[in-house]
């Protein structure tokens, strides 16, 4: 099984420790992913703004980097949603379609491919509020959605429940968007900030010490809001918890 690791651009720059945790976590399960060195970005920043033509060369580079792998693992549901559902500026050759189909998010890879049944090295004795990235939830179906009449499930929560010590807290509006939204966060700052403030206040009101998510982008935004409001919330990627970070 040839596995590649894609570390999204914002994570590469702002959250390198999440990439490291992802790499180490995969190695704990006997998967040693390759890291194609010319990787940059999945194209989402441009595509999210409607600029598909402007994303074409970036998408082509992505496909060149990741052709030939059985799985391309990404610690971001949002980037996976872009690659799987929206990477259409690049010509849809067989290779491109294969790359798109073989790209999966870390949670999916652990839950659906490796079908892991425990993280014996992990312990996280804190109150955790889990944040669903909207692309991960409603785009690649990490869990059931509150708007739909469907059986309740959650892939990330079923993984977190295997970690010793984790106490999951329930917040109001559990799957409401936090207002990041890519380009939305800069072109609609009024509502973006308000949504972010409401979200972090909700985490805090539910008694959370830590906010955990499978996407760093939402958490960059939420952390910015929480810091500005002076809320004592800490933010961790699910990879860090599953890899054994204690705090």
């Amino acid at each position: 099984m040839r596995v590649a690791l894609f570390v999204p651009c914002y994570m590469d720059a702002f959250e390198p420790e999440v990439g490291i945790a992802t790499l180490n976590l995969l190695r704990r399960f006997g998967v040693d992913p390759e890291y194609p060195f010319d990787q940059t970005c999945c194209g989402q920043p441009m595509v999210n703004s409607g600029c598909h033509d402007e994303a074409k060369a970036t998408e082509e580079l992505f496909v060149r980097n990741f052709t030939g792998f059985d799985h391309i693992v990404v610690p971001s549901g949002s980037c996976v949603h872009q690659i799987r559902c929206h990477m259409t500026a690049v010509e849809q050759t067989e290779a491109v379609q294969q790359v798109r189909q073989r790209t999966c998010d870390l949670v999916e890879f652990l839950h659906d491919v490796l079908k892991v049944d425990g993280f014996p090295w992990a312990e996280f004795s804190h109150k955790v509020s889990y944040h669903n990235n909207c692309n991960a939830l409603r785009g690649i179906f990490h869990g059931s959605m509150s708007e739909r009449r469907e059986a309740s499930y959650s892939k990330p929560l079923s993984l977190l429940r295997m970690v010793k010590g984790v106490t999951l807290v329930e917040k109001a509006r559990p799957d409401e968007c936090c207002g990041f939204g890519g380009a939305f966060s800069v072109f609609e700052p009024a509502v973006s900030v308000k949504m972010g403030q409401d979200k972090v206040r909700d985490h805090a009101a539910a008694g959370a010490d830590y906010v955990v998510s499978a996407d760093s982008s939402c958490m960059l935004h939420q952390k910015g809001c929480a810091d500005r409001l002076g809320l004592p919330l800490r933010f961790r990627h699910i990879a860090q918890i599953l890899n054994g970070d204690r705090a």
């Binding site: 390198p16 982008s217 910015g224």
Partner: peptide, 30 residues
């Protein structure tokens, strides 16, 4: 980086949010 986060003429990110800490070492460099 990321283009949608910082590179805008309005500096609208910091209207109600703190900036993330600048990178010390990228994953790539690590």
């Amino acid at each position: 980086l990321p283009a949608f986060l910082v590179a805008n003429p309005l500096n609208s990110w910091t209207r109600g949010r703190d900036m993330p800490a600048p990178p010390r070492e990228t994953f790539h460099q690590w």
